[in-house]
Design a protein around this nucleic acid. Structure first.
Lengths: 178, 178
DNA sequence: GGCCGCATGTAACGGGTTACATGATTAC
DNA sequence: GTAATCATGTAACCCGTTACATGCGGCC
């Protein structure tokens, strides 16, 4: 099965949500989808061009500053097809911290403890960000999408909490072990 | 900061743990590090070649069938340097399921529920695998590395459990919401 | 002798990041 | 008018996957 290019669908989906220009899409991803997605301008603009060539989107007559696009009928169908398609398997997510930990015999215990502590600090920062976004969404519960947005956030929050617990338990194990 | 290539260090680390041939490294990663790492032969052999050119590893005189390598002094130093180096930041891990969920307004509720159920099924499978490996390591606790291996596994177990909880909660939210 | 599995290797390709280039508008 | 920021775009490069190629040993 040839891998599908997810970037296409991120862009189609954002277009369907009212993000009309490349610049705006990048900004929305960086602020609202940043807990599970990211993108660079080097992907955005070429992908928009390709989607237009495939007839999935069209450029709107643009009076203003930004180049505006809109979904075509085909584009909307393609988005709906992809959204409905089941996810096949769990990806293996490479994890630098765990790779280092797996080989931690080659480092001092202090250094390893520090690494986990630093990891915990980053996780707490992230958790606070998530909770702030959560509060923000809940204060504007108008949108049709709000339920789904909150679900994706909850995913991040639960995962982050579990990893914080792991940090605590690991520190205890390593400190206790000597 | 120019990104470092982790594959190099995975290979150096495995060499330090007694995996001497490319074939064996790939096999070890697929069986023992597969909860947080993966690799392909298309990376292994070119990377070995490059590491040898850089003087971090040397080919041993090989009587047998497999090409054997060993860490040089420089190679060991480079591994130790990398292991001790702190991890800078939390990576954004792209997540197809969440991307689909974020745009789930464009799919039927049944399809979305199914996707989450299927995800839960895969997570349970994975959890069982983790627990089996955990038991296996605990039954041979001889190794110096066992503590660290168990920590990396615990990471996977806690994360997987948290995501299973998320699946349950999400299913409830979506079913209840209508 | 022919087939199968092991082991090593390479080439083509695709996705993604980074750095750079360019115009247009706004700010002072 | 020139500096900064917005907005679009492109090219070079790196990493990783996939598919293919090759030689070797054992097996029946």
């Amino acid at each position: 099965m040839p891998k599908e290019n997810m970037t296409r669908y991120a862009i189609l989906g954002l277009l369907a949500s009212g993000c009309t220009s490349g610049y705006e899409m990048k900004h929305t991803i960086d602020t609202s989808l940043n807990h599970f997605w990211k993108i660079s301008f080097g992907q955005v603009y070429p992908t928009l061009k390709r989607l237009e060539a495939e007839g999935l989107i069209v450029e709107e007559v643009t009076d203003g500053e930004r180049k505006q696009f809109a979904l075509t009928k085909n584009g909307h169908a393609e988005l709906a097809r992809w959204v409905a398609e089941p996810s096949v398997e769990l990806p293996v997510q490479r994890n630098d911290l765990l790779l280092k930990l797996y080989f931690a015999r080659h480092a001092s215990k202090e250094v390893t403890l520090q690494k986990i502590q630093e990891h915990a600090r980053l996780l707490e920062e992230r958790l606070e960000t998530y909770q702030a976004i959560d509060a923000m969404i809940r204060s504007y519960p108008d949108s049709n999408d709000a339920v789904y947005w909150l679900l994706t956030l909850d995913y991040g929050i639960r995962k982050t909490r579990a990893l914080l617990d792991w940090c605590d338990a690991s520190l205890e194990t390593l400190e206790g072990g000597n």
